[in-house]
């Protein structure tokens, strides 16, 4: 190992890890919105909506993310005739993919809430939507935080896959440096270290959020 070389490439990799983090954060953000909508459709008892959400979840959980990235970046532009932008394709793929997983996380969270909660809310004259918003979701989101944290970390690691469409995140940057030098070990251990720092930071943040939400309501 040549430590001076590691120090030389670290700033570049560090900058790339910021893009990795940004990709993941925007991806999970889109995922949370899509997942929330999809989970509500799934429990809505309106058959066609439930079916659409189920197809969405099954497709994106049942096919490799790598293939989904290829579809979004290569196949869709051919069908709809537009010029793809790698960064946009990458974020979109991460977003819709995590949306499918988040949908199942929220669905499990919502279903874990005692049926009596919905009954009590409805018996007071609240609509289904009001009951969801004020009673069920606040409790469901809380129980969903730990699995959401896991999904966040998994997505951060999976974001390395967008390197196949040449988004210059951490993985791609590692490969680009590798093309210019024979110091392969230094590069990939550095890349691994940066991923590890990112995932550990997220884990800390999730733990903190979890603990903060627990105070005042120790169920």
């Amino acid at each position: 190992m040549r430590w001076d070389f590691v120090l030389e490439i670290l700033p570049k990799l560090g900058k790339a890890s910021i893009l990795t983090l940004e990709l993941t954060v925007v991806g999970i953000g889109i995922g949370i919105v899509l997942g929330l909508v999809s989970s509500l459709l799934r429990i809505s008892k309106i058959k066609p909506l439930d079916l659409i959400a189920k197809l969405y979840v099954d497709f994106f959980r049942g096919t490799p993310l790598l293939v989904q990235i290829a579809i979004i970046h290569y196949a869709l532009p051919v069908i709809f005739g537009y010029i793809p932008v790698a960064l946009v394709s990458g974020i979109a793929a991460l977003g819709v993919n995590s949306g499918a997983y988040v949908s199942e996380i929220f669905r499990a969270g919502i279903q874990s809430i005692d049926r009596g909660q919905m009954e009590a809310a409805r018996s007071l004259g609240m609509t289904w939507g009001q009951s969801m918003r004020h009673i069920i979701l606040p409790q469901a989101v809380k129980v969903s935080i730990p699995p959401l944290g896991n999904e966040f970390i998994a997505l951060l690691k999976d974001s390395s896959l967008v390197s196949i469409i040449a988004v210059e995140e951490l993985m791609t940057t590692g490969r680009l440096i590798m093309g210019k030098t024979p110091r392969v070990a230094e590069i990939w251990f550095s890349v691994a270290l940066l991923y590890l720092i990112l995932t550990s930071t997220i884990a800390l943040f999730v733990n903190y959020t979890e603990r903060r939400l627990q105070t005042g309501d120790n169920r």
């Binding site: 005692d114 009596g116 009954e119 009590a120 009673i135 606040p138 809380k142 309501d217 169920r219």
Partner: peptide, 8 residues
């Protein structure tokens, strides 16, 4: 029977 207060 089981109160069903909103725990949050």
């Amino acid at each position: 029977q089981r109160f069903n207060l909103f725990p949050h």
